[in-house]
Write a protein that binds this DNA or RNA. Structure first.
Lengths: 238, 238
DNA sequence: CCTTTCAACTTGTATTTACAAGTAAAACAA
DNA sequence: TTGTTTTACTTGTAAATACAAGTTGAAAGG
């Protein structure tokens, strides 16, 4: 055998079916081929097929109904990633504008929004930036992002106007978000937020402190987000 | 006729093992009995045991290593399920108290916190309850829960003082939380919240509107949570 | 004494067989 | 036509069996 690493059959079947869903061969609401059909197509037995389908269920690609079949649910949405939801109407990407308040610059760490830092992070310093996001020309988000200055050449000279921070990290540095932890609290706007959000005193603001885990082990992104939820609420699935 | 559907063997085994982990019979790092041992104990075959163990892996209770065994990972932190985190110190279960403001009662639906209801939900009415949760004898959470009154016999007469709502649903009605969606916003306390939280006017409060998906298709739980984050923040992973 | 080998575990993969239970449409009877 | 039954699917559960592959510690060898 030329192949050292044996990939299990159920995994192969899973990969095929999964890619067929993500690539649009099967659409939302479609009925997958029955287990027995899949058996003959892939030349394996039912338990093997079922193992592949079980995984697709767990990951949210399909739902199954006894007596009926396996129904395609679609591509699962990112869990825990909060997005905006309008109180009046849905918002597209068109009316979203990002204004860089503080361009990425190298600083010393102050503190990471109540998250403890390790020695390596403190020593390497951080890339600091502040952004204000406007929806329909109204400021809704203000966020501070701090990234350890570890193996990110020429990062501060990148252009962030069009691309999002995470797009840049993924494309140029192969850094991908895997998960993270967050703390949420409700505060009243301070002087700075009153100015940014153009609101009066006593205005309630949603604050998120996030520690974002990446595919680089030990490499975390720290982010503090303030959100004026008067017109738009934060939306997420879990 | 109340037809009691037979509970599968793999589910029984799962329940036993799961409760042994949550109740502290097995601790973090412990090795579970081997599959063959579990087979003889529960008088089932390996595929059945493995199905139960697979689920425990998926839910994060255990990890398994070929040739070694199944290692207890502990009680998983719910993804998207927000929990409390103290600004001063960690909080145990001891200093958590739940006070039922409005006992479960059957009502007509008013509205489901901005989530649209379908015809079946509206017709069946809802089980309504209000709870106030205290941490160290200080009120921190106030939540309103609305559950469609569909196939939940004797629900309103259950005792919720010790068991949590979701424990009751899982144990007596086989209803399990699968996921859901939520909207978060920051508001100022109204009269009622000022009274419950014992705070003055203008106090910021975190509000969550949640639509919780269950294993019963089309059966959703609607929940509105108000949180005084002055001393405790909401914590979640994603 | 240390190293290697091996035997006895563990979980992982896969097949085969059987029946239960839910669904939907065809076939049938009124 | 209308309502019921049957039938042919679907997925769900469960057993018995076999072998592969990783781990560990004890026995055998130097």
């Amino acid at each position: 055998m030329p192949q050292n690493k044996a990939i299990p059959q159920h995994r192969k079947v899973y990969e095929v079916l999964r890619s067929h869903i993500t690539d649009g061969v099967f659409h939302e609401g479609d009925l997958l081929p029955s287990e027995n059909e899949l058996c003959t197509v892939h030349k394996v037995t039912r338990p093997t097929i079922r193992k592949a389908l079980d995984r697709l269920v767990n990951e949210g690609y399909i739902v199954r109904h006894q007596g009926k079949g396996s129904i395609v649910k679609g591509i699962p949405k990112g869990v825990g990633i909060l997005s905006l939801t309008g109180t009046t109407s849905a918002i597209g990407q068109d009316n979203l504008l990002t204004h860089i308040v503080v361009k990425p610059e190298i600083r010393n760490w102050q503190e990471a929004f109540t998250f403890p830092l390790n020695q390596r992070e403190v020593e390497s310093g951080c890339i600091y930036m502040e952004r204000l996001r406007l929806v329909n020309n109204k400021p809704v988000f203000f966020d501070i992002t701090m990234i350890p200055n570890i193996n990110l050449p020429r990062f501060t000279s990148r252009n962030f106007e069009n691309k999002s921070l995470f797009d840049v990290l993924r494309k140029y540095y192969q850094v991908e978000v895997k998960g993270g932890e967050q703390k949420l609290l409700s505060i009243v706007a301070d002087e700075r937020l009153m100015e940014y959000f153009k609101v009066g005193p006593g205005h309630p603001v949603l604050q998120l402190n996030r520690k974002i885990e990446t595919n680089r082990s030990g490499f975390y992104i720290y982010s503090q987000v303030f959100c004026n939820t008067a017109e738009y609420a934060l939306y997420g699935i879990f």
